[in-house]
Structure formats: C-alpha cells, structure tokens
Design a protein around this nucleic acid. Structure first.
Length: 494
RNA sequence: GGCUGUGUGGUCGAGUGGUGAGGCAGAAGCCUGCAAAGCUUCCGACGCGGGUUCGAGUCCCGCCACAGCCA
C-alpha cells in the first residue's frame, strides 16, 4: 500500500511519512485512563483523538490492532516524589469501597461515556492488575541487564547506569545531570541512588490493599512498567504508534522508552503521538486540579459554567474542530459553534439520498469543484489527521449539496454525484465518527407521519393557527418540523 | 530557572513560502404564510523587533505573553 499519510512524530519533532513495520498492518498503543474518578473532558480529547487515528487508518485499509489500557493499579498522588496516597486507595476510603470496586465502577462509567461519544472499542483493552506477572518479568530483565537495583523490597530504575549506555530524555529534551543539581531531597527518597530514579516495584505498606507477591516483596508495580509490559505483550517490539496526552510525555513516556532499552535493548515505538490538552479559562483541566467538567455534567448541563446541556456528538465535533496538537479552550461559545457544525453535517447526511444527477456525462465546472473537494478530504486527513480542515471541506461540499438539491439547473454528472455521496458519507460517519442522534422507533415515526400529514392538510387550507399549533407542541417535545421548498418535511430531534 | 508546545479578525479555529479556510457573532439581500433551514454578498487577522527571499502567517535569530512538564 502506497501511503501518503504524514504523522508528526513527537520523538523526532518532525512530520514523517507513515510507513508501518509490516505492510498493511498497524500496531497502536494508547495510554488509557486511571480509573479512580468520573470521565471528564480530558479523557474525551485523548480518546477521540486516537479513535479518529484508528478510524482513519482503518479507512485507508490498514488492519489495525489498537490497544488501550486501563490503569487500575493505583499510583500515587505525587508520583515523581513518590509521596501522597494511592489515588484508587484514597477513593476507596472516601467511598467506603474495595479498591477493585472503585476501579470497576469507573471503568464502567468510562466505557459508557466512550460509547456515547461513538469512540470505537479498542481491539484489546488490557488492565494493569491482570498483567502483574508480565510486569515482574520485565523488571527481572532490567535487573539482569544491570539497569535497576533492589533496596528493601523495592526496585528502582538506575538512571546513572542507563545513561552510560543509552541516551536519556530524547522525548522531552531533558538531561539527567541537570536534574541532579536542583533535585529535592525528600526523606522517603533515601532509598534511591539518584533522585530521578523511578520505581519499578514498590514494597507495599500495611495500609496498601492492592498488592501482589514478587521476588522482592509483597508490593505493587511502578506506574510506567505496566505500559511497557502490556504494549510489548500484544504488539511486539517495536510497534508502530504510541499515543497519549501531552501531560504524559514526562516522566511516563520517557520512562517507557528507557525501560524498553533497558530490558530489550531496543526502542519501543516508531511514531510517538501526543494530543494537546483541554483548558478551562486558560488552565489545564484535570481532576487533580479540581478544575474540570465531567462528561456526565456536560451531557446533562448540570455545571455552573454550562448554559445548557450539550450532546456527546456536539462534544465530538468540538474536539475535531481543533487539530489534536493545539490547545483547546473550552467555552459555551465554542460549544454552540460546534453544535451548529454538527447540525449542518447531519443535514447533509439526510440530503444525500435526494441528490439528483445529470444523465449527460459532461464534465463542467461544478463537477471539477466537487471532485477536487472530495480529494481534499483525503489530503487533509493524510496531513497529520487534520480533522479541522477536513470538516471545513465537508462544509463546502455541504454547501454544494444544498445548491444542487434546490436548483434543478445544477446537475453534476452521475459519477460525480456518486463520488460525492460516498466521500461525504464515509468521512462524516466512518472517519470522523459522527452519527445522527436519538433515532425514533418505527411506531413513533408512523404516528409522527400522521401528525405531519394533518399539519400539511391544515396548511393547504391556510388554517395556519392549527398548523402552527401542531408544530409548536411537537417542538415542546423536542421534535422540530422543518419545511422545505419542495414540500418535504424534515424531522429534527433534540 | 530548564525543557516542550502555543500566540491568526469581535470570537473559536485551519493554514504543507506564491492573492480563497471554515464555524459562531454582526450587516444587507433572496427564498418562505410564518418559523427554521438554505443561498448570495459584505465585514475583517496573522504577539513584538530584526533577518533570509522576487515574495513570509509559514523559514532563521532575539524578545514578550500563555500553557504543560520538570526544578
């Protein structure tokens, strides 16, 4: 397959042509959520970004194995300093639940939210607690290769030994000697040879409920090792694409790279991709900052910053309206704009079956314009998944579709119309993952037909008070009737 | 202080050195019983200062602001 796809690789800081390791196949790993709280807008951005990557690769014909993990082994509130309480454990204490109950509860709510956003389920969704043995195995490898040391039942990654052999900090431009100079001298870090060394395995204290047996102690794995274990288990080494939020670059992804070299003497990944963050009033939106809107709050409108409820598809459009690498500031105005774009795209979808073509196969200016726009959809997506540009092209196509459907003089050739229908439908639904919301069941639809017919009859008799009453009362139920100049009535659900 | 990003019209937000983004808001008109949708036109921008180039929003240097990570 000749790929024209270009991906911005965070590691090289360059746009690179995408060439998979195996022709026609792609292995992709994305850091999923730590399940200790309700899913929020930050989760949605990462999931939608990489869902779109997955969808587009699939659309291009690749067979994609998409692994997105669930972190259900708690890591600490201040991971770098290895201080604070285990996040899941803390939640369990607050809610009086078993830690695994917490993990299950928020795994469920995450999956539910992702379904509503039409985020495709990954091919494999491994949980960290189910891969303790694999993690222990890799820690053993790293110890055997001399890049880790054991102290009091805990195992730490030995950065000093590592940097003698391998470069460290390529992803985030860090160097270990600088870190040494200004590093904090915290009492609980006494075990470490170097303050920047990170835990591979931690001995569990008596308060720790989630713990496993290992050659070193009853304890739990460090945060970074789970991704190394699960990605290599299911995707091999190296694999094609590793994704995650910008906030995970350091220390998480940097450590993954180091662990891979330390255990297997090779780089884990060819292409690193990082989505930018969602900000709220210019600040990072994160649970740990108490500055966030959950997806449930957004969908119900139950948050003081929201003017009203916004649908999952509106959120999806909002996310796709910005390039994944740009910061996205969240506001009612931005949401309203997204809502409008979503409506337009869905109106276009409903319009597709009505498009008429010309029997003559003459190619005129309209045909050229439309065919060029169809090609541009692929060009824009090929250019580092530029969904914002793709949407603008689709809106231009939409504009043509409206003109064609309302003007009998404008009739492109049959082949052009077919191309337009296929492209528009594929990009809106398959690539961008946008679907019409709230479908009516058949019975309700037939009852609606009766009402619509009654209203049309009233309109023909110029009984506008009755026709407007029917329309107004349906609108109260969230069902909007939209008349068209051709006499057809469109139904819109809210 | 270090590293990595980001600065584009009233607002959100694309932009791959060569007169076009697109959405929202605003203005005018067309269509329509009205409304909605749609169509046409208008409105306007590249953080600041240098440089490279025939040509810079785009490349280079410096500065400023904001964000993230680290300290």
């Amino acid at each position: 397959m000749e790929s024209e796809l270009v991906i911005y690789n965070s590691l090289s800081r360059k746009k690179e042509r995408f060439i998979p390791l195996l022709p026609g196949k792609v292995g992709m790993y994305v850091c999923g959520p730590t399940v200790y709280g309700d899913p929020h807008l930050g989760h949605a951005r990462s999931a939608i970004t990489f869902d779109t990557v997955y969808r587009y690769l699939t659309y291009l014909g690749y067979q994609v194995r998409y692994v997105r993990n669930i972190t259900d082994v708690g890591h600490l509130e201040d991971e770098q300093a290895e201080q604070g309480e285990d996040k899941i454990l803390k939640r369990a204490r607050l809610e009086a639940l078993e830690p695994m109950e917490v993990a299950q509860r928020y795994t469920n709510s995450y999956r539910k939210a992702m379904r509503s956003l039409n985020v495709t389920e990954p091919s494999i969704e491994p949980v960290a607690s189910g891969h303790i043995l694999e993690q222990i195995q890799i820690i053993k490898e790293i110890l055997a290769n001399g890049f880790a040391y054991e102290v009091e039942g805990s195992v730490y990654f030995d950065l000093h030994a590592y940097t003698h052999i391998y470069p460290y900090g390529q992803l985030t431009g860090r160097n270990i000697e600088e870190a040494r100079n200004g590093s904090r001298n915290l009492s609980n870090q006494q075990e470490k040879k170097h303050p920047a060394d990170f835990a591979l395995w931690k001995k569990a204290g008596p308060e720790h409920l989630m713990k496993w047996e290992s050659p070193w102690s009853w304890g739990f794995p460090g945060w970074h090792i789970e991704c190394t274990a699960m990605s290599t288990k299911y995707l091999g080494l190296p694999f094609d694409i590793h994704g995650g939020g910008l906030d995970l670059k350091f220390p998480h992804h940097e450590s993954e790279i180091a662990q891979s070299y330390a255990a297997f003497h090779q780089a884990p990944v060819n292409y690193w991709m990082h989505n930018n963050l969602v900000t709220l009033e210019g600040q990072k939106m994160a649970k740990s900052k108490g500055n966030f809107i959950t997806l449930q709050e957004l969908f119900s409108g139950d948050h003081f910053l929201l003017e009203h409820a916004y649908s999952p598809m509106t959120l999806r459009v909002l996310m796709l309206l910005a390039h994944y690498s740009s910061p996205l500031d969240f506001s009612n105005q931005a949401l309203k704009a997204a809502e409008s774009v979503y409506k337009k795209l869905m109106n276009g979808l409903a319009l597709l079956p009505q498009l008429r073509s010309n029997e003559d196969q003459g190619s005129n200016e309209i045909d050229q314009e439309i065919l060029t726009l169809c090609q541009r959809c692929k060009q824009e997506m090929d250019h580092d998944f530029n969904t914002a540009s793709t949407i603008s092209v689709l809106l231009e196509l939409n504009s043509w579709m409206n003109k064609i459907s309302k003007n009998d003089q404008l009739r492109p050739a049959l082949a052009t119309v077919e191309q337009l229908k296929n492209t528009y439908h594929a990009y809106v639904t398959n690539v961008l993952g946008l679907l019409p919301e709230s479908q009516a069941d058949e019975r309700l639809a037939s009852i609606l037909d009766i009402l619509i017919n009654l209203r049309n009859k009233a309109r023909q008799e110029k009984n506008y008070s009755l026709s407007d009453q029917i329309r107004a009362e349906l609108a109260n139920q969230g069902i909007q009737l939209l008349d068209s100049s051709l006499g057809e009535v469109q139904i819109k659900w809210e």
